[in-house]
Amino acid sequence: MKNLLALLFIIALAALLLYVAANMPPMGDPDNPTATHVIPRYLEGAEKETHTENVITGIILNYRGYDTMGEVTVIFSALAAVLAVLGRERRGRIHAYVDRSTVPSSVIVRTMVRFLVPLIVLFSVYTILHGEISPGGGFQGGAIIGGSMIVFTTIFGLYESSRRIPQKVRFPLEGSAVVTFFLVGVLGMVGGGNFLTYAWPRVAAGLQPALVTWLTVLVEIGIGLGGAMVLTSILFCMIREEEEIAVVA
């Protein structure tokens, strides 16, 4: 009975979505509402108004920066939720996991990972700092660092990787994205504009482009660092949980 109801619900939902897909504005039509209302301003104005060559960065950090502030808060909330349910890994107990958390891997894999991880991290730094000019940015760079930590941890285990980025490094940086955003926002108010105004009205017009660019880069760095640390902490937390279950079993 329950399954039947669920099936009926899914079929109804599918029918609804197919119906709407058939009636949506044609894909890629230049006369679409999406293409004619706010987008032209973004495409034409982003470089002049937000002083970022990458239009996407201009939109997510400047035009709609408040949404992005919300998103980094979502990421922080995810970490807080994971910590609340699983608890943070404790330094003293990590030693117990040394051997359990790794599948013995060959010398080739170990050497390659040792060689590649620094390069991946270097690439993520480039992605973060260059987000204002080319595709990329804080979220992407942070995720790349997180990914490199996943690679490192699967090969060398929790003990080794938590020595590379110890808790005392992660802990202060986890909230950096939200705090940076808040500071930039409040500075915008102090500078005579609204919350999250990058081009402070109180600053001479000639200095504003440089100011906006620097603030954008600052926010990118904050998001990158914060994102990387949150992802790493969540990763460690989940591995620890798995290890503890294994130890109990």
């Binding site: 408040y66 919300g70 979502v74 909330s77 939720a81 994971v82 609340a84 349910v85």
Partner: peptide
Amino acid sequence: DVFNLFVFMEILALTSYALVAITG
């Protein structure tokens, strides 16, 4: 703003799931 509404809804949802489970 409707998208902003969604962003805050996500924070609300995530935190409320965790707070229900917090006693563990």
